[in-house]
Design a protein around this nucleic acid. Structure first.
Length: 772
DNA sequence: GCAAGGTC
């Protein structure tokens, strides 16, 4: 049997369709829980199966799991063991691999793809040591690319896979050791641990550095002068002082009075030009996120919805660096498929261009051998999907179209004006040829149309204004901007950048959009910058890339790179351990600052989030016991103090973050408390009695006990399969798959046969039957 | 309970 292994299910399906010329059979293996695609290829009985990315990984042996027992440093030289991360696929791979005479590794054409391929090959070899194998390399799943790849099979690049493996080990060792060290140092254990990593820490550092720049920013005063002018034909427009901003007060004081409302202004010169604007480049993952962000869709939502549309077959593979269409992509066919759809007129217009001049798509600078740029792969109707998904789909379709369209043209006009010997100016621009902007009408700058003006024209001044302004600090990073920055700096990958931001949010390092760091993020970054600077800089990734290139070229061994990396980390720990106490103090001060909510109105001390002896959370005054001012806070969720101040109570607004939920913008704790009191009063008026916390706890205990009693009663006298004690959802699914839907089905079934079919132990099946 | 990288 000939086994072809791909990185993902969709690739298996599409490659099978191409190689079999659509004479493929989809085969289900209910016991293995997978599906394969089978056909005859070059006289071979062929099976194509998809993985799900990495199905194995690495970790430390179990005995290192206890954070207290081992020192963090022990992790540096600890053993590293392989672990299975996707049991189902690993099992299936072994079952099918045993039957294979030949295996083709057809995972993605990149470093991780090579590693994923070698991981799969190693599993097959574990049950079938003599199996023959080779490698297929393709950049897009098109008939042209796939047939070429399978007619020109090549060898597996073990050096490249080793390079990927080195990355895995270095990331694990550095990340785990430093995470554990600073968490222990700060006394933050459990779910509030402080994480560190090669990608997340430099990313967090970017956000912290920006926040520091904002804090250090000293605003500078400046002035702007605007005046409204009117032509003889009573058309008005606004002109401004020629420098726009005026930084010297004396200049503003001199110029402004010279503008006499009712007086004259004179056109000194008029300059008209045509400006051409190039169409945008094809979307890769980063550019797609940026564009989605710009139309008001968060990176997370864009990612999720794109994934849905990809799985439904409307859009191409979501994770790519490429901004250059590969030659094998049939661009004309992709445009033609929109004729007769909602995008009919656009498709027809492009085909007209194509007939005349051929298709000349724009291109960016990045090539990705594994996947083509993001593009539509099937036409869709608005009613096929949710409203927001359509927004994503339309964005991708329009961007795709725009990459074939002509330049947009703007008429621009610059007018210089004299008012009492002072220079003023006005700039106008208007879109004269839409070009690509017709297809892609997002973020279009507004036209600014000036009336017809000529040198020497005399205009009437009808109004004037003087604005006092201040320069603004650099703005915080929005998510799209941060992802682009990470891409520019080479940190993270197209597949992980969005997840890295989510990780920083879930570790309570950052919140909001644009992203704002917490104080503990400051402390962690400051600490790392001082004692473990390597991990906070993008240079670590750059060095790693260089080393990985050398490993894949065979210039250096993986073992040598790992040895050197471990030595470096040992040196870092020498420094960390020498400064253990300082580090602990600095981290803890950050944690304390995150708890400061504001100043106490009664005594002026800091108000902080504290815990009572019983463990209940509240806002209390640092002046205690002299001052006993306090406010309640919600029982669960992480409290985040924002930088927005309540003007009335001089307290920072807070929000409550619970994983998997939308943040709860609670606002000013004092305002919230007042509202709560009001509600209680009203409830009282209406005869509703509030529940005390003790009562609440009692009620929850009672509800839990009742639920347990119900489960036990059902188990004693079961009516459905799910009532049986010890029969969970996973087993239920397996039984359903085997056709066992009711209690009588189970009674009637032969235990041994059922066990073989479902993979459930016959002992368990017997036990369930006993109750019946 | 630790990382980052695949994919879902």
């Amino acid at each position: 049997m000939y086994l072809i292994i791909t990185e993902k299910e969709t690739a298996a399906k599409r490659i099978a369709a191409i190689l079999s010329e659509n004479k493929v059979k989809k085969v289900r293996y209910p016991k293995l829980g997978i599906e394969t695609y089978e056909f005859t290829y070059k006289d071979m009985e062929t099976v194509v199966m998809g993985l799900s990315g990495h199905v194995v990984g690495i970790d430390f042996p179990n005995e290192y799991n206890n954070w207290q027992k081992n020192s963090a440093r022990d992790l540096i030289d600890a053993d590293i063991i392989p672990i299975t991360t996707n049991k189902k696929i690993v099992t299936a791979l072994k079952v099918l691999g045993k039957k294979a005479d030949l295996v083709t590794i057809a995972t993605d054409y990149d470093r991780e793809g090579e590693l994923i391929g070698v991981e799969a090959l190693t599993l097959v070899q574990s049950v079938n040591p003599d199996v023959k194998y080779n490698r297929a390399l393709y950049s897009a799943i098109t008939p042209k690319d796939i047939t070429h790849a399978f007619d020109n099979l090549t060898t597996v690049n073990f050096n490249l896979a080793d390079a990927g493996h080195a990355r895995e080990v270095i990331d694990l060792v550095w990340g785990a050791a430093l995470t554990r060290y600073i968490s222990l140092c700060a006394g933050r254990l459990g779910k509030l641990f402080l994480s560190v990593g090669r990608v997340q820490s430099p990313t967090l550092a970017l956000i912290v550095e920006r926040e520091k720049e904002r804090e250090a920013f000293v605003p500078v005063a400046y002035w702007e002068i605007e005046t409204t002018l009117e032509t003889k034909t009573q058309e008005s427009f606004i002109a401004e002082y020629h420098t726009n901003r005026i930084y010297e007060k004396e200049v503003a004081d001199r110029v402004y009075p010279k503008i006499i409302v009712g007086g004259d202004a004179k056109i000194k010169s008029v300059e008209s030009k045509t400006r051409k604007e190039k169409p945008p480049i094809p979307f890769n993952t980063t550019e797609f996120y940026v564009a989605a962000n710009a139309v008001g869709i968060s990176v997370n939502n864009a990612k999720r919805m794109y994934q849905t549309l990809y799985e439904a077959g409307y859009l191409s593979y979501p994770r790519t660096d490429s901004t250059i269409y590969p030659e094998s992509l049939e661009l004309r066919t992709l445009i033609e498929m929109f004729v007769g759809t909602e995008f009919d007129e656009y498709a027809k217009a492009l085909l007209k261009i194509a007939d005349k001049d051929g298709l000349k798509p724009t291109q960016g600078k990045k090539e990705d051998p594994a996947h083509p740029p993001i593009h539509p792969v099937a036409p869709a109707k608005r009613s096929d999907m949710k409203e927001d998904e359509w927004k994503i789909y339309e964005l991708v379709v329009r961007r795709f179209f725009a990459t074939f369209a002509g330049e947009a043209e703007w008429d621009t006009m610059r007018v210089e004006i004299d008012i009492s010997d002072e220079d003023f100016k006005s700039n106008g621009s208007s879109l004269t040829d839409e070009g690509w902007r017709w297809y892609y009408p997002y973020n279009k700058p507004e036209d600014r149309v000036l009336p017809h003006l000529e040198e020497g024209d005399v205009l009437k001044i009808t109004n004037k204004e003087l604005f006092d302004k201040e320069t603004q600090p650099p703005s915080r990073y929005g998510q799209g901007r941060l992802i682009r920055l990470m891409d520019d700096m080479g940190i993270g990958t197209k597949a992980t950048r969005a997840d890295i931001i989510n990780k920083l949010v879930s570790r309570y390092y950052v919140h909001g959009n644009p992203l704002q760091p917490t104080n503990v993020a400051y402390s962690v970054i400051d600490t790392l910058e001082e004692y473990a600077p390597t991990i906070v800089k993008p240079d670590m990734t750059k060095q790693l890339e260089t080393d990985m290139d050398k490993i894949s070229e065979g210039e250096i061994s993986e073992a040598d790179v790992l040895k050197e990396s471990r030595e470096m980390l040992n040196n870092v720990f020498d420094d960390l351990e020498k400064n253990h106490e300082d580090i602990g103090r600095s981290l803890q001060s950050g944690l304390r600052e995150d708890r400061v909510v504001g100043k106490c109105q009664r005594c002026g001390s800091d108000l902080t989030i504290r815990k009572s002896k019983k463990g209940a959370r509240f806002i209390g005054c640092n002046g205690y016991p002299d001052c006993d001012f306090s406010l309640p806070v919600p029982r669960t969720g992480q409290v985040v103090v924002t930088d927005k101040m309540c003007d009335e109570h001089q307290m920072y607004k807070i929000k409550i973050i619970t994983e998997g939920k939308r943040p709860w913008e609670l606002g000013c704790p004092q305002c919230n408390f007042i509202e709560w009191q009001k509600k209680l009063e009203e409830d009282e008026k209406n005869g509703i009695v509030a529940e005390t916390s003790a009562e609440r706890a009692k009620r929850i205990r009672k509800e839990k006990a009742a639920a347990k009693a119900e489960r036990e009663a059902k188990a004693a006298n079961p009516e459905e399969l799910s009532d049986i004690k010890g029969l969970g959802t996973a087993s239920l699914q397996k039984l359903n798959d085997a056709g066992i839907l009711t209690l009588s089905d189970l009674t009637a079934a032969d235990s041994a046969k059922l066990s073989k079919e479902t993979g459930i132990s016959s002992k368990n099946i017997e036990k369930w039957k006993e109750v019946l």
